[in-house]
Amino acid sequence: MAVFTEVSQDDARDLAAKLALGEVRELRGIQGGIENTNYFLTTSTGEFVLTLFERLSFEQLPFYLHLMKHLAAHAIPVPEPHATPGSATADNPDGRLLQTVCGKPAAVVGKLRGKSELAPTAVHCAAVGDMLARMHLAGRDYPHMQPNLRGLAWWNETVPVVLEHTTPEQSALLKGELALQNHVAASSAYAALPCGPIHADLFRDNVMFDDGELTGFFDFYFAGVDTWLFDIAVCLNDWCIDLATGRQDDARTQAFLRAYNAVRPLAAAERQLLPVMLRAGALRFWISRLWDLHLPREASMLKAHDPTHFERVLRQRVAQAYRTL
């Protein structure tokens, strides 16, 4: 959510008029994040978020935008993309969700109420586990297919690039964990894991709460079709750990898993592979943070995340057996 592309007031007015959103009152860049350009857009009809996509292409983006429309139609609280009025067709009942701003693909979505809970309790973790399970079930009949673009294939491509920026000890850990994940991905147990659209980046700052109520999941632009277990692991590695040490918080972990299981019980293969998938989730974000830190792009308001955080999480996951199943 850094600002890579500066959007002018005229650009914003043109877009608001095209989408029939009313008169522009305010356009404000959003700080944080590292992938896309984001602005809060306030008009005479409401509050919205304008996103310009800096890496995803016009061909890739319909998967994400139509997924959000699909989930909203299934009562999952997500920011709903706005379509060009009158653009719906029999083949595309959602209408034209993808726009062009400053020559780049863009979209406008509704702004969720509330704020992120950056110091979650077991109650917050249970709410996220419950809604994540509902989201997975709601996505079962989503008709579009796109792989997780930051999945195993990307790890295999990116690890050789970032190794030159690591110590010998870090390099050994990266290569060893990558070999393990390739081995697991070729196993029959992995092939038995349930799959579907996943968020793949559901950290604390991508969920909204308002007065204790979970009001929405957002930032779906890492989503893809992958194992639901990977989505669970990503959540557990952020919502249910101590940020200072990377250690698992048992009470929050149990609350999350109980709530998820109450909606969609984990399959036997998922229970078997959860420990190694927790390592996969930590590995994915360690790799991407190394990449973002050492191969950065220029942007206003850009601040790369610390890669050593997920190195700590990974080392904790390697060192400790999973104790809650």
Rank of each mutant, 00 (worst) to 15 (best):
M1Q: 10
S8K: 02
D14H: 02
L15T: 08
K18R: 14
L21K: 13
L21A: 14
E26I: 11
Q31M: 13
G32K: 07
G32W: 01
G32S: 04
Y39M: 08
F40G: 07
T43P: 05
G46L: 12
G46M: 13
G46D: 12
V49I: 15
L50S: 11
T51S: 15
F58S: 15
F58R: 15
Q60P: 07
L61D: 08
F63S: 07
K69T: 11
H70I: 01
L71M: 03
L71R: 01
A75Y: 03
P79F: 09
P81I: 04
H82F: 09
H82N: 07
T84V: 06
A88T: 00
T89E: 03
A90Q: 06
N92D: 15
P93W: 05
R96S: 03
R96E: 02
L97T: 02
T100C: 13
G103L: 00
A106C: 07
A107G: 09
G110C: 10
G110K: 11
L112A: 02
L112I: 02
L112W: 03
R113G: 09
K115H: 12
L118F: 01
P120T: 13
H124A: 09
H124E: 15
C125Y: 08
A127N: 11
D130Y: 11
M131G: 07
R134V: 01
G139M: 01
D141T: 11
Y142M: 04
P143M: 02
N148W: 04
N148S: 05
L149Q: 08
L152C: 07
E157Q: 14
V162S: 11
L163F: 14
L163M: 15
L163R: 15
H165G: 14
T166C: 14
T167D: 12
T167M: 09
E169S: 14
E169D: 15
Q170D: 12
A172M: 06
A172K: 12
L173C: 08
L174E: 09
A179G: 04
L180E: 13
N182S: 15
V184W: 04
V184S: 06
A185G: 10
A185M: 08
A186W: 06
S187A: 03
S188H: 10
S188I: 10
A189H: 01
Y190E: 07
A192K: 09
P194G: 05
C195N: 05
G212I: 09
F220P: 06
F220R: 00
A223Q: 03
W228I: 11
L229S: 01
F230L: 15
F230E: 07
D238F: 01
W239R: 01
C240T: 01
I241W: 03
G246V: 11
A251W: 00
R252N: 06
L257E: 05
Y260E: 14
N261A: 09
V263A: 05
V263M: 05
A269E: 11
Q272D: 15
L274P: 10
R279D: 07
A280E: 09
A282F: 00
L283T: 06
L283Y: 02
L283F: 06
R284A: 13
F285C: 02
W286F: 03
I287W: 04
W291H: 12
S300G: 12
L302C: 08
A304W: 02
A304H: 13
H305D: 14
T308H: 09
H309Y: 07
E311K: 03
R312Q: 14
R317I: 02
A319F: 12
Q320L: 14
